[in-house]
Amino acid sequence: MDKFTSHTGVGAPLRRSNVDTDQIIPAVYLKRVTRTGFEDGLFAAWRNDPEFVLNQPAYEHATVLVAGPDFGTGSSREHAVWALQNYGFKVIISPRFGDIFRGNSGKAGLLAAQVDEKVVAALWAYLEANPGAQISVDLESRTVSAGEGVDRIEDSFTIDDYTRWRLLEGLDDIGITLGHADDIAAYEAKRPSFKPATL
């Protein structure tokens, strides 16, 4: 996984709450056996609507998505994270994320930055007044910022310490755990014999 320290890119305001993973990518697009090519299914139901934010030229190269609360609820499909990444997104900002989606983002290298609801409201207003404007996100200092002068928005975001450290270092989770193989073997040696086995 690549290291993530900071990112600056065009912000897209997605004025919706409860964007579940079926909205991010419907089930019919989940049939690929690769990790790439899922961008064609991203927000599939909304992409036909010319008014949809990502269809507006100003947001064509957006890399930071600013969404309402409960983004990524529902299905565990990591394809939702891949679809956002395949499309070009590096950062998702929301007041609240679905648990599994947030976990998947951390594993796959997409930054899920949780901010106060008023920060999302301010970013939405700023982006809509300045289509194509950029948002900066600094994982080191856990801050999100946009605009200048009186329009300046700067606030902190929340991410758990462990995920932040892994993203900053670009670490492979499995590699870390395999470093504790002795602990796993010790645990296995004391498991009760009545636990079920499939083979």
């Binding site: 565990s76 499909r77 990591e78 394809h79 994270v81 599994i100 976990g103 998947n104 594993k107 796959a108 989770d173 499995i174 755990t177 395999l178 193989a181 796993i184």
Partner: peptide, 11 residues
């Protein structure tokens, strides 16, 4: 998610 599926398969 799938990254965690891989993690559980391996560890």
């Amino acid at each position: 998610g799938t990254s965690e599926v891989e993690h559980v398969l391996a560890t």
